[in-house]
Structures are given as C-alpha cells and as structure tokens.
C-alpha cells in the first residue's frame, strides 16, 4: 500500500514516523512495566520490597511468597471451585447459546421474529440488582453452586454473534436439502451445523470461560459459605480487604516476619492468579480478535 514508497518520504513524514514509533514504544512500556514490577517483587525479599528497592528486577531472590500461596488451603479450594464454575458454566453457556442462536438464524423457523424481539428487549430493559437477587432467592439457589451457573447461563450478546455467524456460514439451501432428504432438525444441528461452526464455538468458549474465571460479582451477592467461594473472592479477601488469618502464613511466630510475608504474598498471588490466563492468551489471541470482528459485523 501507500507505505511501500518510503524512499520518497519527505522530512515531515519521517519526523512523523519517529513520533509514531516513540508513541507506540511508550504504550508498550506503560503496559509492561507495572506488570514487570509485580513479577519482580514477587521474587524479592519482603525487606527489599517494603524499603522500595525493587524496580524491574528481583532483589534478594526468594520463593517464600510462592510457598506461602501454595501452603494456603483457601486459595487451593478457591482455585478448584473456580475451575468447576468455569468448566460446567461454560459448557452450559455454549449449549444454551447454540440452542437459541441456531433456530433464530433459520429463515424457515416460523415465529423467529417474536423470539428475536423477546431477546432484544432484554438488552434494553433490565430488572436491576434487587429483583435479580430476589429471583435467585425465591428459587432457593442462594449459597449453592447453581447460583454461580444458572443466573448467567446465557449472554444475549453472544447469542447475537452466534446467530450472525450461522446466518452467514450455513446457507438456507443446505437445511432445505437436508429437510427434503428426511434429515430431522436436531440431527442437522449435530451433523452439519456444529461441525461447520468450530471457529465460533471456539471464540464463544473462550469468551465465556474468561468471563467465568474472572467473575466475582455473583459470588459476592449469592454465596455465603467460604467453601463455595471462587478464586476471585478469595483473592479479594486477601488482596484488597487484607483479611489474612494466621493459617495463611507459614511461620506465624514473629509479627514482623508475618507482616512482610503478608505483603509478599500479595505479589505472588497476583502472578499466580493472572498467570494462567496471560500465558494461554498469546496462543488464543487470534480467536479473541476474530470474536471482536464477528461481533462488529452486527454493528
């Protein structure tokens, strides 16, 4: 394109490009450095961190913070709970989303406009927090694992994206032909629609899974028992509310050491909790980008 003619670039253009590169380098550093600081602090001794000696590299390398994290039973149970909510929740999300999006994508589905209106209305009006809470309460779901899965079993936005995808990739002729051959609608979904929709299923799974893994709001309002808490609630208690009980720290004998370890634990906990997502992310980045693109087709 236009930038292949760089030989003829004027002085003004060259100066402009220097500014562009400087700006992008600035962006890169601004995003990266605060994260790097946390990683380095997590490997540094508590004294070095508290006295402000840590910048970009670990000072007095130690793994004490990580040991404290792994010795903590709450974090382990939070991790397992989050894994459960993410796997089961995402599975239900994807199944329900396809179940709603596919019929809505079929032109021959009589009454689909009514269902579509039913769907779009929920994007514009909502009951708000209190009625939402009362419904979950009336269904006796409060403080159960189901409260983490059922109320958010479907995201309307994902349905719209999936519907757009089905409409553009599965031609009407295909379902009509299958219909003539005596293939039932459900069989058509399993043997034609799903195999053709792998990209959107991947995008949807990723979006829903990240959502479940990172969510804390539903747990905050619906759960009371600590043994049901997902990781994010445990993290909130440790990182933000600072409520670390004695069992959290291995040697609880000395108050000073405990305080230092408590601070160190925060850094290693941030690294451990966001690590999995950030390590997997570069490999699945293109799917997320694709998801945004498909979503924007609608707009």
């Amino acid at each position: 394109m236009a930038r292949t003619v760089s030989i003829r670039e004027s002085g003004g253009d060259r100066l402009f490009m220097v500014l562009v590169y400087a700006f992008l380098t600035f962006v890169l550093l601004v995003v990266l450095l605060p994260l790097l600081y946390i990683v380095s602090s997590s490997f540094s001794s508590p004294q070095a961190v508290v006295s402000g000696k840590v910048w970009l590299f670990p000072v007095q390398f130690t793994l004490d913070g990580y040991k404290a994290v792994f010795n903590n039973p709450q974090i382990g149970s939070g991790f397992l709970n989050s894994l459960f909510y993410t796997v089961v929740g995402t599975l239900i999300n994807v199944v329900l989303t396809v179940m709603l999006a596919y019929p809505l994508a079929r032109k021959t589905f009589h009454g689909r406009n009514i269902f579509m209106v039913l769907l779009v209305i929920t994007m514009m009006f909502e009951g708000g927090l209190i009625p939402y809470y009362l419904v979950v309460k009336e269904l006796n779901l409060l403080d159960t694992r189901w409260a983490m899965i059922l109320p958010g079993a479907l995201a309307v936005f994902q349905v719209i994206i999936a519907r757009t995808f089905f409409q553009s990739t599965i031609p009407d002729e295909l379902s009509e032909a299958a219909d003539l051959d005596g293939c039932s609608d459900i069989r058509f979904i399993f043997s034609i629609v799903l195999p053709l929709s792998k990209p959107i299923l991947a995008v949807m799974t990723l979006m829903y899974a990240v959502g479940h893994w990172n969510a804390y709001f539903d747990a905050l309002i619906f759960l009371r028992s600590p043994d049901l808490f997902p990781l994010q609630i445990v993290l909130r208690n440790v990182l933000i509310l600072n409520t670390i009980d004695a069992s959290m720290v291995a040697n609880a004998n000395q108050m000073l050491a405990q305080q230092g370890l408590k601070d160190l634990l925060k850094y290693s906990l941030i690294v451990i909790a966001s690590g999995p997502v950030l390590i997997i992310y570069p490999f699945v980045q293109k799917y997320f980008v694709k998801g945004v693109m498909i979503g924007s087709l609608k707009g």
Binding site: L104, L119, E126, P131, L154, I186
Partner: peptide, 25 residues
Amino acid sequence: HWQLYLVILLPISYLIIFKYVPMAG
C-alpha cells in the same frame, strides 16, 4: 419443524426466568 421449538424451549425459559421475571419484579 417441531424439533426447533423443542430446542429453543430451554433457552427461552432461561430468558423468562432470569430476565423477564426480574423485569416484572
């Protein structure tokens, strides 16, 4: 196409229970 109605039944029930009932609430 009765099967399509069967398929959509579950997600529509979800919308009614967790979106429309709170609206009425």
